[in-house]
């Protein structure tokens, strides 16, 4: 099949960008979306032009490195799917496909489709961990974790930190990302001692990075390639408010 691409090209963080049009020809439906871009890049290199820069690594939907807004939807049209696991069989011959980077104040564009997501690491630094020095752990079965709690914690922990939630949110909020980590850790008995500090400090860090607040649009859940539920945002709101009445909050 042949498709037309409109791709955001931007040479550097401080330069202005714009859309450029490319023809992707001889595309087969078993190609992944990124493999389709690979072939476009091969043809650009052959013509002596600069290939399109885009982040990617594992290409199996788990590292969270890839992320393109495809026809206005972060990670494209397939639900619960990262860009790297999107296949060309979901497109038709003759389609025009618009490809943009994540758009958010807190994710500045570095080049073409690559954005800077280091803000996410800084949110984790504010409390997205359980303080447990190597070697100080007790036997793993000492603390039983009810299966439904472990499962729910895992539902949150499955977040890959790609940033699609931010790209999808009209407010550019990182609440789904932040809540997924708080939810993962606060649900578990091991995470309880630091639960209130974690919730408050991570949300404060999120706001300090320039992400917006949550106003319950639900776009984040719809765009999330791991289908992390916005229920975790509700859970975190409770944790956040509870902190101010808790004895163990500093």
């Amino acid at each position: 099949m042949n498709v037309t691409l409109k791709v955001w090209r931007q040479k550097g963080p401080n330069q202005s960008g714009g859309f450029a049009e490319y023809k992707a020809e001889g595309i087969i439906e078993d190609m992944s979306f990124l493999e389709m871009l690979d072939t476009v890049n091969e043809s650009l290199i052959a013509k002596g032009e600069t290939p399109i820069a885009f982040d990617n690594d594992c290409r199996e939907g788990i590292c969270g490195m890839c992320g393109l807004v495809i026809n206005g939807i972060p990670h494209g049209p397939s639900k619960g799917t990262t860009t790297c696991e999107l296949y060309m069989r979901h497109f038709k011959d003759g389609d025009t496909i618009v490809i943009e980077p994540w758009r958010s104040v807190a994710f500045p564009v570095m080049k073409d489709l690559i954005v800077d997501r280091s803000a996410f690491d800084r949110i984790i630094q504010a409390g997205g961990y359980i303080s447990c020095k190597t070697g100080s752990a007790i036997d793993a079965n000492t603390i039983p974790v009810p299966k439904p709690i472990a499962d729910r914690s895992m539902d949150a922990a499955t977040c890959i930190g790609c940033g699609a939630c931010v790209a999808a949110c009209p407010n550019g909020s990182a609440m789904l990302f932040t809540s997924a980590k708080i939810g993962h850790l606060n649900l578990l008995p091991q995470g309880k001692p630091e639960r209130f500090n974690r919730a408050v400090h991570m949300i404060e860090a999120m706001e300090a990075e320039g992400f917006g607040g949550c106003t319950n649009h639900g776009e984040c859940e719809a765009a999330c390639p791991k289908s992390v539920s916005i229920d975790f945002i509700a859970l975190v709101n409770r944790e956040y408010m509870g902190a101010f009445c808790a004895a163990d909050f500093e």
Partner: peptide
Amino acid sequence: QCVAQGVPFAREYGG
């Protein structure tokens, strides 16, 4: 170590 860090390993119903 991993359990103490909060790795949500699969559990039986008894926890």
